[in-house]
Write a protein that binds this DNA or RNA. Sequence first.
DNA 1: TTCAATGCAAAAGGTTTGCATTAGC
DNA 2: GCTAATGCAAACCTTTTGCATTGAA
Lengths: 128, 128
Amino acid sequence: MTATRSTRQRDVIARVMDDAEGPLAVGDVLTRAQTDLPGLGVATVYRTLKLLTEQGRIHPVTLDGETRYERAGRGHHHHFSCTRCSRVFTLHTCPVALPSGTVYPGGFIVEAHEVTLYGQCPECAQAP
Amino acid sequence: MTATRSTRQRDVIARVMDDAEGPLAVGDVLTRAQTDLPGLGVATVYRTLKLLTEQGRIHPVTLDGETRYERAGRGHHHHFSCTRCSRVFTLHTCPVALPSGTVYPGGFIVEAHEVTLYGQCPECAQAP
DNA sequence: TTCAATGCAAAAGGTTTGCATTAGC
DNA sequence: GCTAATGCAAACCTTTTGCATTGAA
């Protein structure tokens, strides 16, 4: 039997992920969690992020060559990266119609897809 | 003055990039180039990829948290990452209709987009 | 001949792992 | 009390850098 224990470290890291306003880098998670747990080690953060990922509670996103983690279970979504302010937004509308199992030209069987849009966010679009 | 020299290493690496069927990881480039230049070192590959990038002949793409390089100037295209063999292919068919200037729900002005499909490549789809 | 480019090895980041200790259950 | 989880440090991997040597012009 697998016995996953509930620990203070895991609770804090899970809370940090839940409270995040966007995808967080490992360093961000460590810093935020250390507010409550000064002695927290990096290894625990990595192990916990891996665990949460396996549990499907969070998932990794690579943006600008950097691996970040964001809360999962918010349904299918994509990202919009603003070319002016560099902020990343979550989009809940999907511009692609590719159900799992679709056979793409060339014989590629599609299981999933990822879309990142680049442009100007509503705020920057208004600014001069 | 800057004096960039033409060397056998650079020629070989540039050829490898030109012949690539999709974005290559540094290790791929090294392996392929070593067919012609057994003594080639990793450092030279990194330095040359950086040089080619600065010259605008190739550009980096981050897929699955791994940095790869592909030839530039090949027009609009996307990528397919095989979940079984981990190879990345270039797709010439675009699954989204988002011309530059499109206003996306929420007020996001789209200038460009990036799509990555995940699944099984033609070869892996045939294997048991 | 000159000095940019290479190869090697050491260094520098970021991530993972081994192990003794701590702490959930 | 048993053993999963932690913290620390060492190990790993990928990328960069220092330096003596090589080789393009």
